[in-house]
Write a protein that binds this DNA or RNA. Sequence first.
DNA 1: GTGAAAGCGCTAACAT
DNA 2: ATGTTAGCGCTTTCAC
Lengths: 351, 351
Amino acid sequence: MSAPVLGPTRRPTMKDVAALSGVSLKTVSRVVNAEPLVSADVVARVTAAIDQLRYRPDDRAGSLRRTGQRVNTIGLLVSSTSNPFAVAVHRAVEVAVTRERDVAVIASSADELAEFEQRTVEMLLRRRVDGLILTPMSPSQAYLRDELRFGTPVVAIDRTPVGIDVDCVLSDHIAGAAAATEHLLARGHRRIAFLGDLATIQSAASRRRGFLDALGARGVPSGSCPVVMDLHSEEAAARATVELLRGEDPPTAIVGGQNLVTVGVVRALRELGLQRSTALVGFDDLPLAEFLDPAITVVAQDPEAVGRIAVERLFARLEGDASEPGTVLVPTTLIPRGSGELPVPEGRGRG
Amino acid sequence: MSAPVLGPTRRPTMKDVAALSGVSLKTVSRVVNAEPLVSADVVARVTAAIDQLRYRPDDRAGSLRRTGQRVNTIGLLVSSTSNPFAVAVHRAVEVAVTRERDVAVIASSADELAEFEQRTVEMLLRRRVDGLILTPMSPSQAYLRDELRFGTPVVAIDRTPVGIDVDCVLSDHIAGAAAATEHLLARGHRRIAFLGDLATIQSAASRRRGFLDALGARGVPSGSCPVVMDLHSEEAAARATVELLRGEDPPTAIVGGQNLVTVGVVRALRELGLQRSTALVGFDDLPLAEFLDPAITVVAQDPEAVGRIAVERLFARLEGDASEPGTVLVPTTLIPRGSGELPVPEGRGRG
DNA sequence: GTGAAAGCGCTAACAT
DNA sequence: ATGTTAGCGCTTTCAC
């Protein structure tokens, strides 16, 4: 069927199909949209013309006129392409949205730069995406208020939004960091260091909070437990680790506040030859972590759950759910593998 | 400025802005598109109205009418969300396209399922994306011929397309696998096993080809070097490794034909306690590979280069480049870390 | 400098 | 069961 049509290089429109099959525009539209009440004969003729011309409907035009105005596309803003957690959430959203729903995703990352957030969101809104899943990075998301009134649903992920009242899905950063800390405290550590990402990142601040909470619950003075923030790269984390361990009264245990930070700590501990004498619990799982020696104990997040639940909330809103927006806390899981179970070295009992 | 406007929840259009500022539709259009020949006074009035109404242009409508018909969006089809190489290419494309170009990416993955390829491409074409970067997964891409005539540029990545003549950017799979194999041969190994992904995947087949080529160049009979294909998961690769090493006359060295395959091999070697007596070179780098013991020697691909070059080719075509389509081979790099430099164990010299 | 009319490709609402 | 008319939100063309 459908011999190659050379001639015109212009993309065929519905009008061309109508002309070729000798019916009206509307009838072609009916066939394309599989509406009933079209005779089998006409369906055949139109289908043949579509095949012959290689006609493909233009979704832009359709969505422009169609009531409801859906474009079957959602926008996604993740924090950073270098963060494995963000990448995993991105994939989870794409999978959840593409499978069965026939909706596409326009994704973008702002690399933790607050000023890119609004710029990127504007770009998505000009494309009239049906909804938005975004990682709040700027101090306020109030700029989205009117958009919400116009009917575009928004779901925040990984961090609590400010200035708008929308659904939010995030890991329990505080509880996770507290669990990591308590895990070390339970093994006798009393000089524990916390190494965190940029203090301006809400999730990083929450994890520090969890760390301090756990110390407080045990009555451990936080003065003996150094907190270093603003470590936004593996290298920075490695340097900070070396500095801490070479300093006076070095910590016997470390909580790595983020994926890349933990890798930096691992690198530094190995360079110093201290990986078997300094306990380590990392926030966020790492690939191959189980094969290291010692294997790395981590507090694993559940990026698949975060992505999937965010998509579910968004589509519930699109389908009319008008209940009060809420926050879903996705639990974390502590996975003991060795590095977090290292004891306090002899003679360094109570810092 | 811009007091909150309550009342109507309908999204404002250019018409609303025109009415509020007391000018014609066309004049608003001029202001929005920063066309010259508009008096400063009118610009101010229109801008105020835009602010007050929270007007945002509709890119769909614009692109529909505008000559050139660009939607400032490209489509990307990657092989699989579980493949780190594909994920890295995806990120590279997104970064290259978003920065400075103000173009968005609609990405999708077909999880190596040939039938999803065409379905996904159709979805992208209905959205009238400006161009397509895709990983060929089905036996032929001839279905794209007419689309190319209509002016949509296409760039293939990771695998050579069939049935269409378009630009292609891929790693030098054959040379990379040959280098991995030669690395082991040079250290005396003569019983080397190759474990590969699905034989239907072109890149997997190319790597097997490179393996066999390297054996041939040294005059090593391929009969003594087992090739196991169709290992599409870490678990399958681990099982195959165990089987090989428990069998008669086990290999002294292994080439892991793909990321996840290599991880499976690592797992199996450790379970068998053979990680220090069986040499291993993996295709594709792995995070933390340097921290394992022994650290894993790999042939690293350059996903950033693949993504970036594909984007460059695509935009060159969009800007009118009509030269003959060509293929860019991105070189791979062998990174010796330990596992690939293990010697042949005593007494197992010449298999 | 500004505006009115036509139309991008399609669907809604109403014919018949 | 099929066609006609209007119009989605915008830009083009051409007039003033």
